[in-house]
Design a protein around this nucleic acid. Structure first.
Length: 488
RNA sequence: GGCCCCGUCGUCUAGCGGCCUAGGACUCUGGCUUCUCAAGUCAGCUACGAGGGUUCGAAUCCCUUCGGGGCUACCA
């Protein structure tokens, strides 16, 4: 069992296998890795586990890099930044794994296995039928040289298999406490494929040792593979006190079905970016899945997260992803944005939606309008629809809303408003509100919601809009009056 | 099937033997505020999976049971 080695420099790695785009589960792991490294003042290492050449693609690798960058999870060692223990792509470290594999072979820790896939499957099938734990039976452990020659003559290519000795492995998981696996349930496992390429089981352990990783915080799905990693450390001759410490993070699941699905977070982080979620909101929300700062706190900045995050406060039970809560937090984060920051986030959404082209005068107007919509949205993607009325060249009232102002009372409101507003000396929301309240509420005796509703529809085109008087001020006297006239 | 992990409101969680007739947040419902929508604010609904122990006392410790999940690959 690894002793406490807290005196070591903290080095945490996030090592995804990019067989697809990173989703919320992956990111939650990356976030915790990052937060722990930053909390302790240690190093955050980003390593790409691309030993599965069938499924990992360069595009997915690049997407993973971009996602971490966008989220603000900066790494000290890894792709693009390099580092003293590189390269950080396993596909570029093949010689290293080959060397260790041959060393294990020479030491007798590993052996060549000539069993074919069909033979292995037949064995497993038989075991299942006999109600035994399926797993490699050690067939090739002690092959005679004659048998080996025969297999070779048949043209069989061997894999390299690690020999699991009798006994058991116990290690202390930082989150779950001591966990023990009897080796009879951990069969000899393959380190190197028949074509000479390494497997995760070999590469992950070798790299964690060579990269001097001190803490492995990863998904719970890897818990039962831990004894195999420890076995490789042992074969490498690593002192037990230098073994990395393990912490297996609980799963992030979908809301209804147990698994993560498209609607429940299985989508890529890029989707959240395009849907108008802030990186800080995503990180804040994800941090709450399996961890909490305590003291009834929930809203934390990235900086606070690094200050408060400890593995001790991560708990062991799985969490369900809840889009509603993410939205709520995103709304909080948007409201907390400074005007300049909000403007920068808003621009691409307005431009992509075709609301504005990005000219200086447009940006100037946007900047004036943002404060009145800041507390009304939960995602950035809602911005174009709310500000559209300020920029449309050919203004039209929504057909559904148009019906609401077709009655005689609405016409009267509009008529009177147009007359009074036309004589207004100074066009600002205070004066607009003052004169309209006087004319419609005081003099006509109308209820505010009735009176202003007609104006709202006429001016903004919708019965839902930013505050009316501010909207009219921003729109300007000329356009406002034109629209009211047009609605008559 | 075997091995391993997990189990507090619908959801995320606080809780680490008495402060708990279980607190916060999201959601939902109702009220206030109000030019719409929001925001804000007040209130309400709803939880310790079950059964045994240990103890003066258990959500907190132990056992069993039930339930959920992971692994069981020449994937990771």
């Amino acid at each position: 069992m690894p002793a406490n080695n807290s005196s070591r420099e903290v080095r945490v790695r996030f090592a995804p296998s990019p067989t697809g785009e990173l989703h919320v589960g992956n990111i939650r792991t990356a976030l915790f890795d990052w937060a722990y490294a930053r909390h302790t003042g240690g190093k955050f290492i980003f390593r790409i586990e691309d030993t599965d050449t069938e499924r990992v693609t360069p595009e997915y690798i690049q997407a993973a890099i971009n996602t971490l960058k966008w989220l603000g999870l900066d790494w000290d060692e890894g792709p693009e930044v390099g580092g003293p223990h590189g390269p950080y792509l396993q596909s570029e470290r093949l010689e290293i794994y080959a060397e260790w594999a041959s060393k294990f072979l020479a030491q007798g820790d590993a052996y060549h296995c000539y069993c074919s896939a069909e033979e292995l499957e037949a064995v497993r099938e038989a075991q299942r039928k006999a109600n035994q734990a399926p797993g490699y039976n050690g067939h090739c452990r002690d092959l005679s040289s004659q048998q080996i020659d025969e297999y070779k003559a048949e043209g069989r290519l061997p894999v390299v298999r690690m020999l699991m000795p009798d006994g058991s492995t116990t290690f202390t998981d930082l989150i779950r406490g001591d966990v023990t696996f009897e080796h009879k349930f951990v069969p000899d496992f393959v380190l190197v494929r028949h074509d000479g390429s390494p497997l995760y089981t070999l590469a992950v352990a070798v790299d964690d040792v060579l990269m001097k990783v001190s803490h492995v915080l990863r998904g719970e799905d890897l818990l039962s593979s831990t004894p195999r990693q420890l076995r490789v450390y042992d074969a490498m001759g690593v002192d037990v006190k230098d073994y990395p410490l393990f912490a297996h993070l609980p799963f992030v699941m979908g809301q209804d079905n147990a698994k993560l699905s498209k609607r429940n977070g299985e989508t890529s982080i890029a989707w959240y970016r395009d849907a108008g979620y802030l990186p800080e909101a995503i990180c804040n929300y994800l941090a709450l899945l399996g961890w909490s700062p305590g003291e009834d706190r929930e809203n934390v900045t990235m900086k606070e997260l690094t200050e408060l995050f400890t593995v001790e406060r991560v708990h062991s039970s799985p969490a369900r992803f809840d889009m509603k809560k993410l939205e709520a937090i995103n709304g909080d984060k948007i409201r907390a944005l400074t005007l300049d920051a909000f403007l920068e986030w808003a621009k691409p959404f307005l431009i992509n939606a075709g609301t504005i082209s990005g000219t200086a005068s447009e940006i100037e107007l946007v900047k004036k309008a943002l404060p009145i919509i800041q507390e009304r949205i939960t995602t950035l993607s809602e911005i174009p629809a709310l500000l559209n009325f300020l920029f449309v060249s050919e203004f039209n009232v929504e057909s559904e809303s148009a019906e609401k102002i077709a009655d005689s009372q609405s016409k009267e409101v509009l008529k009177i408003s147009a007359d009074r507003l036309a004589g207004l000396a100074e066009w600002n929301h205070e004066s607009i509100e003052g004169i309209l309240r006087q004319a419609l509420i005081v003099e006509l005796g109308l209820k505010p919601r009735i009176a202003f509703s007609a104006l709202r529809i006429a001016v903004t085109g919708s019965h839902i809009s930013p505050p009316l008087f501010e909207s009219m001020e921003l729109l300007g006297a000329q356009k406002s009056l034109e629209r009211i006239q047009a609605a008559l």
